[in-house]
Amino acid sequence: MSRFRAAALALAAVFVPFGAGAAEQVNVYTYRETKLVQPLFDAFTKDTGIAVNVISASSGLEQRIKAEGANSPADVLLTVDIGRIDDAVAAGISQPINSAVIDEIVPAQFRDPNGQWAGISMRARVIYASKDRVKQEAITYEELADPKWKGKICIRSGQHIYNNALFAAYVAKHGESKAEEWLRGLKANLAQKPSGGDRETARDVAAGKCDLGIGNTYYWALMLNDPDKKAWADATRVVLPTFEGGGTHVNLSGVVLAKHAPNKANAVKLIEWLAGEKAQQIYADANYEYPIRAGVPLNPIIAGYGKLKPDPLPIAKIAANRKAASTLVDKVGFDN
């Protein structure tokens, strides 16, 4: 029995001190990895004296907040893409942010018309093109289904959240039947069955398995800065593709204010701070992202891709077509 008691005491000693006792605090549930957002929170605490408690996960946080109900310690939910924001709002765990600061800084296209969420930073879904084998400078998303690329394209699972959002944007722009036709064309152009992650995609292009890979901007920047993987980045160049008559598809990282936020004032303070110049500069430099705030300089690697022209489609329209996109991926057997 004493062994159990000792273990219980040890457990209490290990876990209880965290999150308890601090005078001013804010609790963040995040889909972005802790290691990525911790520098931001440290800077926030330094600026405001408000301690930030964090939990990160890959899925299910909105279900956790929902189950926690009125007792939930969650103040802010931070997401990687529109998909999870949409889930959070649908689960009824959000409340309007009501911040004049956010309304001023974040372009209307990148926030909810009803104020339930706001975008904070962006990554673009781009093409890693082989330097040796691809001479074409500009490529459209539509063109990826062109038979001239037959057997030359690599991509991760069509159900992955980043591809899901890209395909949803396609559905929103062209309608379901056109999107289905496009997906079939893209599928027919794949060099191999979708697998791995964006980083494997870049590697496959570098190794000559395919000529074009579809991936996110920051993976490429990370590779360029890793001596082991620099060769993969060096063998490829990043092309910012566009929709015909539109711009480049972006993954929007966003914030939601939790419905029962116990530290609501601090939560709004954090959200506004994240859209501030200092935080936006950290997003740009440390995380290789595109800031949501105008006038913040890009990281030189990211700037080297050329000028990003985000597609003007309202993000809310993409959210509305996620399910249709997922259904089409199954229907055309994209991942098979």
Binding site: F18, G19, N27, I55, A57, P73
Partner: peptide
Amino acid sequence: PATLLLRPLNV
């Protein structure tokens, strides 16, 4: 997966 979703804040 279960650890990710169920663990306490800051752990």
